[in-house]
Amino acid sequence: MSWIREKELSLIERLCANVLKAGPMPKHVAFIMDGNRRYAQKCHVERQEGHSQGFEKLAETLRWCLNLGICEVTVYAFSIENFKRSAEEVEGLMELARQKFSRLLEERDKLEKHGVCIRVLGDLTLLPLDIQKLIAQAVLETRNYSTCFLNVCFAYTSRHEISNAVREVAWGVEEGLLEPSDVSEPLLDRCLYTCKSPDPDLLIRTSGEIRLSDFLLWQTSHSCLVFQSVLWPEYSFWNLCEAVLQYQLNHSSIQKAREQHLQESRRLQQESDQAWVRGQLQGAARREDAQLRRRLLQQCCARREERTQSFLRALESKRGDFLWGLCTVPS
Rank of each mutant, 00 (worst) to 15 (best):
S2E: 12
S2Q: 14
I4Q: 05
R5E: 12
R5Y: 07
E8L: 08
S10Q: 08
E13W: 13
L15C: 09
A17D: 11
K21F: 03
P24D: 12
P24Q: 06
M33H: 02
D34C: 00
Y39H: 15
Q41S: 12
H44S: 14
V45G: 06
Q48V: 09
G50W: 13
H51S: 12
E56Y: 11
T61E: 03
W64V: 00
C65P: 02
G69K: 10
V75A: 06
Y76R: 00
Y76G: 00
F83T: 06
R85T: 10
R85V: 09
A97R: 00
S102T: 14
R103S: 13
R103Y: 08
V116A: 01
Q137H: 14
V139M: 15
T142Y: 01
V166R: 00
E174R: 05
G176A: 02
G176L: 02
L177D: 08
L178H: 11
D182I: 12
D182W: 08
D189G: 03
R190G: 02
S197M: 11
S197Y: 07
P198I: 06
L202N: 01
I204V: 15
T206V: 06
I210H: 14
R211M: 12
L225N: 15
F227V: 08
V230Y: 07
W238N: 05
N239T: 11
Y247G: 01
N250R: 15
E264G: 01
R266T: 11
A275S: 11
W276C: 12
W276L: 14
Q282L: 11
Q291D: 11
R294K: 13
Q298F: 10
C300Q: 13
R307Y: 13
F311M: 03
L315P: 04
E316K: 10
E316I: 04
V329K: 13
S331D: 08
